[in-house]
């Protein structure tokens, strides 16, 4: 493959690629703990395929995106701007934020919605080294009984869930796989 430029690495067939990607994103958001793989675009490093696909599927000039830490690189900025037209912003104003858990924090700087409009909250795309159906125990909407998911920081995510119906929602990405954790999920450290 030729050198990566801002023009390459987008969806080949946007309506169909985005439709498949959204179904995966919707499935994991509706079923916390499930993991799906996605494809269709090749974002520049350090973005994972899954994070790139999510950004391409959900972001456009109407959504403000925060690039945290190493993702805030020229190549990523140009790629994102070219393919989505999404304006870049800081954490406090972001509709979407992407980066490692370390880079994204602290959580309390993101929008959590208002009591009358809890939907006006940030969605965080957390890049992970590892994504497994093991670890903390999850219960709540979308989960039959219990589920498990490797989470980066149980305490912070519990605090987020305690704000319900306010709070942020999360995608976790690793390579071409993704999982999600909506604010409605209850988390127990071990189980």
């Amino acid at each position: 493959m030729a050198a990566h430029t801002q023009f390459s690495g987008g969806f080949q067939n946007a309506p169909v690629d985005a439709a498949h990607a959204f179904r995966a994103a919707m499935t994991v958001m509706a079923r916390p703990g499930e993991i799906r793989s996605v494809s269709g675009c090749q974002p520049p490093a350090p973005l994972s395929v899954a994070a790139g696909v999510l950004l391409m599927t959900l972001c456009d000039p109407d959504t403000k995106v925060h690039l945290a830490g190493a993702t805030n690189a020229d190549a990523v900025r140009q790629w994102l701007t070219f393919h989505t037209g999404a304006p870049l912003t800081d954490a406090t104003e972001a509709d979407f934020a992407v980066g490692t858990w370390q880079a994204l924090g602290p959580l309390n700087q993101y929008r959590v919605g208002t009591p009358e409009y809890p939907d006006r909250s940030a969605t965080l795309i957390v890049e992970c080294d590892d994504l497994q159906q093991t670890g903390p125990k999850l219960t709540g909407p979308g989960i039959k009984g219990t589920a498990h998911l490797s989470l980066p920081d149980v305490r912070a995510l519990q605090t987020n869930a305690s704000l319900y119906p306010l709070g942020c929602d999360f995608f976790f990405t690793c390579g071409d796989t993704l999982a999600a954790l909506p604010r409605s999920t209850q988390i127990k450290d071990r189980g």
């Binding site: 309506p15 985005a18 994103a25 958001m29 456009d60 000039p61 109407d62 969605t123």
Partner: peptide, 26 residues
């Protein structure tokens, strides 16, 4: 376009669906 709606409209609807799933019944 595929499924009639333009992509920007679909993205707007998709974002709403995800938030709807995150806050069931809202």
């Amino acid at each position: 376009n595929f499924a009639y709606l333009d992509e920007q409209t679909k993205r707007m609807i998709r974002r709403a669906i995800l938030k709807g799933l995150a806050v069931p019944g809202y």
